[in-house]
């Protein structure tokens, strides 16, 4: 069965230098179990191939049903160096929520 990430989670993204951080929060405990099991760092790296040029780190915050991802080398240099329209990665949480997960 395929589920859309946007149906079970919300989130927020921002910049940390040239890395983007994407926090994804499940709406309920069941959703968090799905995130925890299926939304791996490798899957996120694959999803952002061509955008994220570095490694992806994943951190768990079960206390708020959330995962935090650090996508290194993603923002075209970061700060005012980046020529990207979204130089601060503000829209990347939404971009991750495009993902569909096979469960």
């Amino acid at each position: 069965m395929k589920i859309k990430l946007i149906d079970i989670a919300h989130g927020r993204s921002g910049d940390k230098g040239d890395a983007a951080n994407i926090g994804i929060i499940a709406y309920d405990d069941k959703g968090y179990k799905i995130l925890e099991k299926h939304l791996t760092a490798d899957k996120v790296k694959e999803h952002f191939k061509g955008i994220c040029k570095g490694k992806v780190e994943r951190f768990e915050l079960p206390n708020i049903r959330a995962l935090n991802f650090l996508l290194h080398n993603t923002l075209g240099g970061g700060g005012t160096v980046s020529l990207k329209h979204d130089a601060q990665g503000k829209t990347l949480a939404a971009a991750l929520l495009r993902m569909e997960i096979d469960i």
Binding site: H10, G11, R12, G14, D15, K16, N21, G23, I25, F59, L61, I64, R65, A66, N68, L70
Partner: peptide, 9 residues
């Protein structure tokens, strides 16, 4: 929760 996750590592 969204703000807690903002720009953290």
């Amino acid at each position: 929760a969204e703000q807690l996750l903002y720009e953290i590592g």
